[in-house]
Amino acid sequence: MLMLPLEFCFQVEKVLKSVIDDCYPYEWDEDHITRDILKGLRKSFRDVTLFGYRYQLNINWEVYKYTGTPEHLYGDVAVLVKIRFRNGDLSEGVGFLEAKKRSIDSNRFDSLKNTQLEDILSIAPQAFLLLYDYENITTFINSISYLNDFDDYGEKYLQGLDKHGHFPRFLSETYCVVAPANLITSTSPKTTSLYNRSLPLSYQLCYRYLFGFDLEYDSTAIDIAKGYPPQRRYPRYVMVIRVGQNVPPPELDEPLNSEVLQILEE
C-alpha cells in the first residue's frame, strides 16, 4: 500500500474513530476498545510504504496478545519499533501505553490509579496514558502542522475529498489521545483536563513512534515487550512495527516469546 504520510495518518485516524464509535456505549471497556483498535490497524496497514519524505519508509505492522496468566500486567500495549536507517544503523525500542476510558456521564477517568502508573513509570519513564472518549476531543495540543509533508500531489488528494470532507475534522477532533504518564501525580485531576497535555494517538503512531521518538531503549523494557522478563510482567498486547528507510523492514534480532505471545487474530 503506497501512501503519503498525511494520508496515512488520516486513514489511521479513521480506523480509531470507527472503532470507538462502534464500542460506545454497549462495549465501553478499555480492553475491548484496545483489542478492536489493534485489530483494525493491523488489518488496514499490515504493509505500508510512505513516500513524500526525502526517503521512502517501508513499514510492516503485526499485533500479538499475551495468552497466559501473568503475575502482573505491565501496561495495555507495548509498541515495539525496529528501524533500519538510511545509513544502515539499526535501533530497537518500545513505547508503553496504558489505556483508560472516560467514564460515561462524567468527565473523569475513574480507573486511573497512581500506584499502577508509578509501577509502569519505574521501568518506562516515557510511558503514555492512552485516553478514550465517546465525545470529540478538541483540546489536545494542536500547534503541530500536519501539512508540512504535502506537495502538489497532496493538495490534489485534499481537493479530491467529498465536499463535506472529514479531513478538517481530522485536523481538529479525535476520540483517542495520548498524554505523558509522568504528568500524573497524587494530586493531579484525573479528568478530561488531561487532554490539554495530549496528542492524538494517530499522530503519535505516525509521526513519533515510526521515527524512534518516545521509546525506551533499555534491555529491561525490550525484554518485557518481547515476553522474556525475569519476572512474570507482560503487556496485554504487543504491536510490532518494523521500519526500513529506503530498504525493506528489518527483522527482529530476537523473536517474540511464542510461548506467551500469539498473533491477535482478526
Rank of each mutant, 00 (worst) to 15 (best):
E7I: 01
F8V: 06
E13D: 14
S18Q: 11
Y26D: 14
Y26L: 02
I33S: 01
I37H: 01
L41Y: 00
R42Q: 15
R42T: 07
E71L: 12
Y74V: 00
G75E: 02
D76R: 10
G88Q: 10
G88M: 13
F96Q: 10
L97W: 13
A99F: 03
A99S: 07
R108A: 13
D110F: 11
L117S: 04
L117C: 00
L130C: 01
N136L: 08
T139M: 05
N142Q: 04
Y146H: 03
Y146F: 12
N148A: 14
D152M: 06
D152R: 06
E155I: 15
Q159N: 04
C176T: 14
A181M: 13
I184G: 07
T187H: 11
T191E: 01
L194C: 02
N196H: 09
S198R: 10
P200L: 11
L205K: 08
L205W: 10
R208V: 09
F213N: 15
L215S: 07
D218R: 02
T220M: 14
K226L: 13
Y228W: 03
P230G: 11
P230A: 12
M239V: 14
V240L: 14
N246H: 08
P249D: 10
P250E: 06
P250T: 08
L256S: 01
E266A: 06
